[in-house]
Write a protein that binds this DNA or RNA. Structure first.
Lengths: 150, 150
DNA sequence: CTCGTGTGACTGACCTGTCAACAAGGAGGA
DNA sequence: TCCTCCTTGTTGACAGGTCAGTCACACGAG
């Protein structure tokens, strides 16, 4: 029942999931690279575009569940590449406002359709309604459980 | 049918999966760090232990689906930390043999039970037989599809 | 034999992510 | 006011990963 090793049935499930994880991660990253972006850049760009207005690093971090340090490093790199700007004008003197540049918006527009098509083609297409229900329910349950446990 | 955005139903599925991915990755990495290891170290240690004898970097790479460069960097770091040794004695003069050290074996023994328990507690526990069947089937199908497409 | 091609492994440059430390600004109570 | 504590954001050091380039060797065709 609780040995030191996963039994074959457990291993088949967990191994299949790990393989899925690996090929989806590398495939998605490759697709975004072909479109001139990257996973991290894309997530930040989408977050800013959907908000419709400049955001503080804190809000980006909350949205993506990234820690402050990661957000800061990522924004510095994206600023150097001309995708976003940071301005310190703010009510809270600690704060920074991060805004999309024209180039950032254009990078997002160039990458988004291919990304959406990739997700449909390589993930959603393989799920019928019942599969999708199972996957969504299980995923939410695991996320809830792990999030509450923190 | 094929708009530029994911519709709400698609987004619920894909978003749930991305969240699952994120919490499992960070949780698993944290658990292994608490046990004195890391995801990359652990995979290499398990591969070597299960083989039961020293392996060549090529074989480790094939087993884990890592490229040669990644394997080489990882082994260099693990050798510096005393987890493995590399010896150049070999029939094929290009080859290297990678072996576990006592410390490597001990690190694995210290990490394995907690890792297995973590996978059961945070992943397998949430899947009944039907869920597991759906997940395994879908994962294999997606992996096959993406692997063949390379 | 030797030439060409493929394989095994390493390295350096560079990008990404985590952690710990830090600086500096708010916010509230004694 | 002053003290304390929390929040925001940055940075440096480091582990991890990808990519391109390099070197040595293996091996079959001719």
């Amino acid at each position: 029942m609780s040995s030191q090793q996963l039994d074959p049935r457990e291993l088949a499930i967990w191994g299949a999931f790990l393989d899925l994880w690996r090929v989806l991660a590398s495939g998605m990253e490759r697709q975004l690279a072909d479109a001139g972006s990257s996973g991290a850049d894309y997530q930040v760009l989408v977050t800013l575009e959907e908000a419709g207005h400049p955001l503080r690093p804190r809000d980006i971090g909350n949205q993506l569940a990234w820690d402050r340090s990661r957000v800061s490093h990522q924004l510095r790199r994206m600023e150097q590449r001309g995708l976003v700007t940071r301005t310190s004008v703010e009510v809270d003197a600690r704060g920074t406002l991060v805004a999309l540049t024209a180039q950032g918006r254009q990078t997002l527009r160039a990458a988004a359709p291919g990304h959406v098509a990739w997700v449909r083609q390589n993930f959603l297409r393989h799920l019928d309604d019942d599969d999708a229900e199972v996957l969504t329910r299980v995923a939410q349950q695991i996320v809830d459980s792990l999030t509450r446990a923190e």
